[in-house]
Design a protein around this nucleic acid. Structure first.
Length: 643
DNA sequence: GTAGGGTTAG
């Protein structure tokens, strides 16, 4: 081996970034080493698998190789199978089959079947199954285990079971694969039966059960299995924490994370992303900050998934500035998820221009936007009232980037026109959509009818919603609010009556606020032990002061009945966000920001009250509602009263 | 020098 070759190999061993790889590439080209198949193979392995955002580089590099060997083909097929567009993996396989050499081997089929699984293409999977049969690899243990997973991913549990049954000697991995396959196809009973039949189990088999139960929403079964398992490893703990977070059980996620810490184990990055996600959903800003400190101390701030979760937590807790700091510190490690999260953060806070600026920076940096990136861009345009730009990006995503708009993109466009008051244009857009509009689309339009007070269109839209989702409480409440705003009390009563007749209950609104790192939640009409009196007193003081000093007059649009004015005032003054803000004003020290998370949309009256409090008391208030953030300062809101 | 099963953010 020449000294240049030795140097090149040792450089490649430490290579961690694309820029670094490019430097080594230049050196290898100059010395002619790039033609060495071993070195070229290593280049591919690094760019296609190990280094983030380097797959395009791998493809270009591959095209320059005169006659790639099977290892090179396999590496590229594998890299593409894990990408956004796994179908490109298939194109590379077809290219391989067109040539007389090299021939595909067992590795090729393991990777290409994984691509079919990721693409969820049953037809493609079946054809590749045939291909593996033709080449005599379908009975290979690894290939067959991948077949079990592939069929399950594509929703065909019968073929998955058949592939497993044809294994003469399944090992523990094959057994785990068939158990996961049952869970994927929503056959929890089947999964339990296979698990009980297993001749051998390591901790992974138990973890398969935990993950399966969690994904099926069977939290009690997951907890039971967790208690029963003989030995818990860090993956078991992470699975539980992540599972709770994904099922919306934040308290249990926090509780398991604390227990995990108490064991004296250093929590891994996955458990941290899980607990951060629970913070993000619950709006637990102070706890998030503690985790941030912990992450830096443990040196986990170099792990992209952790920093992405952290930046998302900050922005969902209303602190988009801290999110930006985390984002900037990632330097060249930013992934498409980091960019898109940051853009979503800006968009939620109403920074439309900032979102678009980030979009261009991302494209500049060489990362291709995907469908989720465009959801953020369109969402930003709609929340900032950038109608022309929104339409332009909607056109561009298909023409320039080849991304077919999905229902979410159409939803953003309907929202864009609706918010701007172009209700007819929005309605025509929905009618002209090439895909069937879903309830979310119609609901967006109904929301717009409420804001822009269009009773006639609202009735039309509600009819469609009644066909698709007749018992939705939110839609019925919205329609009755629209009638209430228009003073049509008879219609309000009719909606209410039909709701009572069909036993539809209004989804209870709740608001949460964190004080001394503890989350307190408030629900209308429910007292909170020990603090009710305190909250009522404070609220009365606030309402009086904003009337006298801020000229507040209540708006009753969100009150359902045709009741006396004074009663109406009581009903709106009890909205959960008002209780939460009163509690925050009573407990948090002067000058600190008040952060509230609400499960529903904030009502117009509460919005006005928040603005007045921010002015009269000189307090900064941030409210996250179902759709976006409202940052109240000196009498104004970041949404410009447009939500 | 590459694989198959369990936990990871938008």
């Amino acid at each position: 081996m020449s000294s240049a070759e030795q140097l090149c190999i040792s450089l490649l061993k430490d290579c961690k970034t694309l820029n670094n790889l490019k430097q080594i590439h230049a050196f290898a080209t100059k010395s002619g080493l790039v033609n060495d198949s071993f070195i070229a193979g290593k280049f591919l392995l690094l760019s296609a698998i190990s280094i983030a955002n380097a797959l395009d580089y791998a493809r270009r590099f591959f095209l320059q190789i005169p006659s790639p060997d099977i290892f090179m083909y396999n590496t590229l097929i594998r890299g593409l199978s894990e990408s956004e567009s796994p179908q490109n993996s298939l194109l590379t396989y077809i290219d391989l089959r067109r040539k007389s050499s090299p021939s595909p081997d067992s590795f090729s089929f393991a990777f290409i079947l994984k691509a079919a699984a990721n693409y969820k293409s049953l037809n493609g999977g079946i054809q590749l199954h045939c291909q593996s049969l033709i080449h005599g690899f379908d009975t290979h243990l690894f290939v067959r285990t991948t077949l079990v997973s592939m069929y399950a991913e594509c929703g065909c549990i019968i073929s998955a079971r058949k592939s497993f049954a044809e294994l003469p000697q399944p090992n523990v991995v094959s057994w785990n694969a068939i158990v996961t396959a049952c869970f994927r196809c929503e056959d929890v009973k089947g999964a339990e039966i296979f698990f009980n039949q297993m001749p051998f189990r390591n901790s992974t088999s138990w973890n398969v059960m935990l993950a399966g139960f969690m994904k099926s929403g069977e939290l009690e079964s997951a907890k039971r299995a967790f208690a029963d398992m003989p030995a818990k490893d860090p993956v078991s703990w992470s699975t539980m924490i992540v599972g709770f977070a994904q099922n919306g059980s934040f308290d249990e996620a926090f509780c398991f994370f604390r227990k995990f810490l108490q064991m004296g184990v250093r929590p891994n990055e996955v458990s941290l992303t899980g607990v951060l996600s629970a913070c993000a959903q619950a709006g637990a800003f102070e706890f998030g900050k503690i985790l941030h400190g912990y992450i830096e101390k443990a040196g986990l701030d170099q792990i992209v998934s952790v920093t992405n979760a952290l930046l998302d937590t900050y922005s969902r807790c209303g602190n988009v500035e801290m999110a930006r700091v985390v984002f900037d510190r990632m330097m060249e490690k930013k992934s498409i998820v980091s960019w898109t999260s940051m853009m979503a953060g800006f968009a939620m806070h109403g920074y439309g221009e900032g979102t678009i600026k980030l979009f261009h920076e991302m494209v500049q940096s060489g990362i291709k936007p995907d469908r989720i990136t465009f959801i953020s861009v369109l969402y930003a345009c709609s929340h900032a009232g950038l109608i022309e730009q929104g339409s332009e990006y909607f056109r561009k995503m298909k023409e320039t980037y080849g991304i077919e708009p999905s229902i979410e993109h159409y939803g953003c466009m309907v929202d864009l026109y609706s918010r701007a008051g172009l209700l007819n244009k929005a309605y025509e857009f929905v009618i002209g959509m090439p895909i069937e509009p879903n309830v979310i689309i119609w609901r967006t339009l109904l929301g717009a009818c409420s804001i822009h007070r269009d009773v006639r269109l609202a009735e039309q839209v509600k009819e469609r919603l009644s066909e698709l989702d007749p018992d939705n409480s939110g839609d019925n409440v919205l329609l009755s609010n629209i009638y209430a705003n228009a003073g049509k009390w008879k219609d309000v009563a009719a909606v209410r009556r039909s709701m009572t007749d069909r036993k539809i209950k209004k989804e209870p609104g709740w608001s949460a606020i964190e004080v001394d790192k503890v989350m307190y939640s408030f629900v209308v009409g429910e007292g909170l032990n020990g603090v009710t009196e305190e909250v009522n007193e404070k609220l009365q003081e606030i309402m009086l002061r904003i009337k006298v000093e801020g000229g507040y007059t209540p708006e009753f649009g969100s009150v359902l009945h045709d009741i006396e004015e004074e009663e109406k005032e009581n009903a709106v003054s009890l909205h959960s966000e008002k209780l939460a803000v009163a509690f925050g004003m009573a407990r948090l020290c002067q000058g600190s920001m008040i952060r509230i998370v609400k499960n529903l949309r904030v009502c117009r009256d509460c919005h006005t009250v928040m603005k007045l409090i921010s002015k009269v008391y000189r307090r900064e208030i941030v409210v996250r509602d179902r759709n976006r953030f409202h940052s109240f300062q000196d009498g104004n809101c970041s949404c410009s009263d447009y939500w």
